[in-house]
Amino acid sequence: MQCAACYRESKHDFCPKCSKRLFDGIKIAARLSYAAPKSENLPDYLKHTSRLSISGVQLKYSLRREEKALILTENQGEYIVKPVPPSTQLLAIEDAPENEHLTMQIAEQVFKIRTAANALIFFDDGQPAYITRRFDLKTDGKKYQQEDFAQLLNRTTASNGQNYKYDATYEEIGILIRKHVAAAPPALEALFRLVVFNYIVGNGDAHLKNFSLIQHESGEYRLTPAYDLMSTKLHTPYETDIALELCEGCLDTDFYAANGYYGRQDFIGFAKRLGIAEKRATGILDIFINLQNQTMKRIENSRLSEESKSNYSKIVLDRLLRLSRR
């Protein structure tokens, strides 16, 4: 049996390590006791909707743990669950939950990117859903102060229009990290690694609200664990390669002008703008390239459909090739 979180062999739905991380060691089944959202039960689900993503079609619901069960809740939610989006406009829509789960696992297991605890679970009719544990809750149930970079940049629909989440560059996120994070250098490197990762897996929706700072007990602000990572290219193949521009003037480089997409030198230039030495940036890019086989193995062993496995692999191989060209 595969652990529903980390894919490793397990005697139970969740291995001991993932059970502790997700559920504090309590044995929770990976199958929920209720049906996936559909027309007859949608009013009940709508009470627990938190927000939308993937161009406004992916609904999120709030869950909390009650003894050994996960139940829908209107308050005191401890988990967010994302079922298969109710859309006919996206490709491979049934693979959306596993897409996000797989991408988060690749980020953490292969590239050592700190991520929110997550897993794949199933409704009682067998339909899959992505679940993640909220990281903004203290042990007493109160929330840590958390702000995403749209808030930090004061970008809203009223001030910047409907596309306000995309009205910035990743360099602007870096500038705010320098301003608000005491340990800025490692946080800037974490940002760089996450931006490169999103580019490699084809996440064209890594916008301002998908990066956040959180205030810990010490009062210091830090980058939150990564969240909302997925290969959106699987579902919207004609979208742009990246949600935000790397930095001002990045579309004017020789490589971009010749190819119409970012390459190795563009990311090295971006790293320098963040204050990361070229040698260090080169080393990080080479790590992503050298771990290609491990990434392919994770994709092949995932629960994606065979067609989505093939498409996901092609996206990653194409992006790694771009980053390999010197």
Results as ranks from 00 to 15, higher is better:
residue 4 A to Q: 15
residue 4 A to D: 11
residue 8 R to T: 13
residue 9 E to G: 10
residue 19 S to C: 12
residue 30 A to D: 11
residue 40 E to L: 06
residue 46 L to D: 13
residue 48 H to F: 03
residue 57 V to G: 03
residue 69 A to G: 06
residue 74 E to I: 00
residue 80 I to V: 14
residue 80 I to E: 02
residue 89 Q to C: 08
residue 98 E to Q: 09
residue 100 E to A: 11
residue 103 T to I: 05
residue 105 Q to A: 12
residue 109 Q to A: 13
residue 111 F to L: 10
residue 112 K to Y: 10
residue 113 I to H: 09
residue 114 R to A: 09
residue 115 T to Y: 09
residue 119 A to T: 02
residue 121 I to V: 15
residue 125 D to L: 00
residue 128 P to F: 07
residue 130 Y to Q: 04
residue 135 F to M: 07
residue 143 K to L: 12
residue 144 Y to F: 15
residue 151 Q to Y: 02
residue 157 T to W: 09
residue 159 S to G: 06
residue 166 Y to H: 14
residue 170 Y to N: 07
residue 170 Y to Q: 03
residue 170 Y to A: 05
residue 170 Y to S: 04
residue 172 E to Q: 15
residue 172 E to W: 05
residue 178 R to A: 09
residue 182 A to R: 13
residue 185 P to K: 04
residue 186 P to G: 04
residue 190 A to T: 14
residue 192 F to V: 03
residue 195 V to T: 12
residue 203 N to D: 15
residue 205 D to C: 08
residue 206 A to F: 09
residue 217 E to S: 11
residue 222 R to M: 08
residue 227 Y to H: 06
residue 230 M to L: 15
residue 232 T to A: 11
residue 238 Y to E: 12
residue 243 A to P: 04
residue 243 A to I: 00
residue 255 F to M: 01
residue 263 G to V: 00
residue 263 G to Q: 02
residue 268 I to Y: 03
residue 276 I to Y: 07
residue 287 I to A: 10
residue 297 K to A: 13
residue 305 S to T: 12
residue 307 E to M: 09
residue 309 K to H: 07
residue 311 N to L: 14
residue 313 S to E: 12
residue 314 K to A: 14
residue 316 V to F: 06
residue 316 V to K: 01
residue 326 R to E: 14
